[in-house]
Each structure stands twice: as structure tokens, then as C-alpha cells.
């Protein structure tokens, strides 16, 4: 019994942190630019493919440092794509209705799928974790793959890093000011456009890193962009749109609900996340950390 509960908690944490890694960039962009970026999954996918290419270039064996170089390469490439997207797409969306943002970012998602197809083809690809992350650790009777522990720790580190960045640094302070009132920030002489650009590049780089870190547990195909997108949106919405802390808590909550739901009712796979999403939004439509809307 304790074994089952231990493994279920562990799997819930793995689900939560994998999803948070994807959701972090998504909620950051929404929090600052108020753009619901459907293309986030597409750039997550490109990050995974870039990292795959780097790892392929280094050949078999894949020590951990190659894996981390792959993640950094993914961050740089996808961050640069973020720069291009901000210059050519997001800037044009700032003063238009939300519906245009949704359509434009959905179109970007399709472009990502097409680009992946052209560059890497349609075939399924995969990479195993580096040997140092491809073992098992026992805690009591519960065995835990080291790569999954690595994913969980990556999620926690990403959360702590983001919290520190937003709350304890000067750039974080500027980002918060712009998020609250860009008009006033502009009046005070802040370069709001540049702060937006930095935010987008950083969010995209996070999508790239998430793709790279999660790649060894996923099949790569042009459909990868959609795999985590629904979960990530769920986490962002339940957490409260734009809240990093909310997304982290929501990921933990939904991960545990999904994991225990599957353990207790295996005949209904995959529905507990959706069920929890619906119930939480009925009870608290603004999400865990979201601000209530007032008329």
C-alpha cells in the first residue's frame, strides 16, 4: 500500500513538474504581455528538436554535459525565435482584440509544425536520457528513475529561479511595473517595448529548455507541440492567468489529482485532469492565485 502511494505521489510530481516547465513561459507571457500564446507548444517542440540535433551531433553515449549543451542550444535558438516573433507578430497584436492574438498564435503553431516537418521530417525520433540519468534510485520500496527525479528537480529549480528573478532582481521589478501599468511605466521613462522583448525572449527560451529537458521521455514528431499544450493551459488557468506561483501550485494540485485518480479509477484514464479543471474553475473562476474580476 505504502509502495503504491509512494509511486503515485512520485508520478504525480513528475507530471506536475514536466507540465510546469512548459507552462512557466506561457504564464509569464500572459502575465506581462496579456497574450495567450497558442504557439508556445510549437516552440517547446522546436527546442526538443534542436536539442535532439545537438545530441545527435555528439553521437552515442550522451554524457550529462552534452545533454545540458543541448538544452542551452535550445534556449538560444528558441530565444532568438522569440525575438523574431516579438518583432514581427507580438508587437502588432498589442493594441488589437484578444481574438486576433489567438488566431495569430495558432497560425504560428501551424508554422512551427510545418517548419519541423520540413527540417526534421515526419518520422518519429527519440533519444534516451544520458547514462548518468538512466538509472533507478530506491527510496524504501519505491523505485524512482533518476531521469524522472531530474525532471522534478528541474521544475523546482525553474520555479525558484523565476520567483527570484521576478521578485528579487531589478529587471524583475521593471517587468512587474510594466505588467501592472505599461502606460504609467512609459510615462516614467521606461522602455516598455524593450522590457516586453526581454520577457518574450526569456519565455521562449524557457519553452526551448523545457523541450530539451523533457525530450528523452517523449517521441519527437511534428505533433509534439500539441501534447503538453492542453495540460500547460490547464495549469496556467487553474493557477490564475499570469501567476508563476499559481501555475506551480496548480501543476502540483492537478498532477496529484491526475495521478491518484488514475490509481484509484484506472478504468477512466486521462479524465481526472479535465474533471479537476472544470470543478476548480466552477468554484474559483479566477484560479488559485488569480485576482477576482470586478465590474
Amino acid at each position: 500500500m505504502m509502495y503504491d502511494i509512494g509511486l503515485t505521489v512520485f508520478n504525480g510530481l513528475a507530471w506536475a513538474m514536466a507540465t510546469f516547465l512548459v507552462a512557466a513561459g506561457l504564464t509569464l507571457i500572459f502575465g506581462i504581455l496579456h497574450i495567450l500564446n497558442f504557439a508556445h507548444g510549437g516552440f517547446f517542440m522546436i527546442g526538443a528538436y534542436v536539442s535532439y540535433t545537438v545530441m545527435l551531433a555528439f553521437g552515442a553515449g550522451l554524457p550529462l554535459w552534452v545533454f545540458m549543451i543541448g538544452a542551452m542550444a535550445a534556449a538560444v535558438v528558441v530565444g532568438l525565435l522569440g525575438w523574431a516573433v516579438d518583432m514581427f507578430v507580438f508587437r502588432r497584436l498589442r493594441d488589437v482584440e484578444d481574438a486576433y492574438s489567438l488566431i495569430a498564435t495558432y497560425a504560428l503553431l501551424l508554422v512551427c509544425g510545418g517548419a519541423v516537418q520540413l527540417i526534421w521530417g515526419l518520422n518519429y525520433l527519440s533519444v534516451m536520457p544520458p547514462p548518468s540519468l538512466n538509472s533507478v534510485v530506491f527510496i524504501g520500496d519505491v523505485f524512482m528513475p533518476t531521469y524522472t527525479i531530474f525532471v522534478i528537480l528541474s521544475g523546482v529549480v525553474a520555479y525558484i529561479g523565476l520567483e527570484l528573478l521576478i521578485n528579487r532582481t531589478q529587471i524583475g521589478q521593471l517587468i512587474r511595473v510594466v505588467a501592472v501599468d505599461p502606460w504609467m511605466a512609459r510615462l516614467l521613462g521606461l522602455n516598455v517595448t524593450r522590457i516586453y522583448l526581454v520577457t518574450v525572449i526569456f519565455s521562449f527560451a524557457m519553452a526551448g529548455v523545457a523541450g530539451a529537458l523533457l525530450m528523452p521521455n517523449q517521441s519527437l514528431s511534428p505533433e509534439l507541440g500539441g501534447i503538453f499544450l492542453l495540460q500547460a493551459f490547464g495549469v496556467v488557468i487553474v493557477g490564475g492567468m499570469g501567476s508563476i506561483r499559481g501555475a506551480f501550485l496548480a501543476a502540483l494540485l492537478l498532477g496529484m489529482i491526475e495521478s491518484f485518480g488514475t490509481y484509484l479509477f484506472p478504468q477512466y484514464p486521462g479524465i481526472f485532469f479535465l474533471l479537476a479543471l472544470a470543478v476548480i474553475l466552477l468554484v474559483k473562476p479566477s484560479g488559485i492565485m488569480g485576482k477576482e474580476q470586478t465590474a
Partner: peptide, 17 residues
């Protein structure tokens, strides 16, 4: 049989089953 959802990114719970 262990039923798994279509298009999931995480099968760990089903693998545990």
C-alpha cells in the same frame, strides 16, 4: 487491460499499474 489515453505525454501512472 490497462487503458491509456490517446496522445498523452506521460504514461508513468499506467506503467506503474
Amino acid at each position: 487491460p490497462i487503458l491509456v489515453p490517446y496522445g498523452s505525454g506521460d504514461y508513468r501512472n499506467y506503467i506503474a499499474q
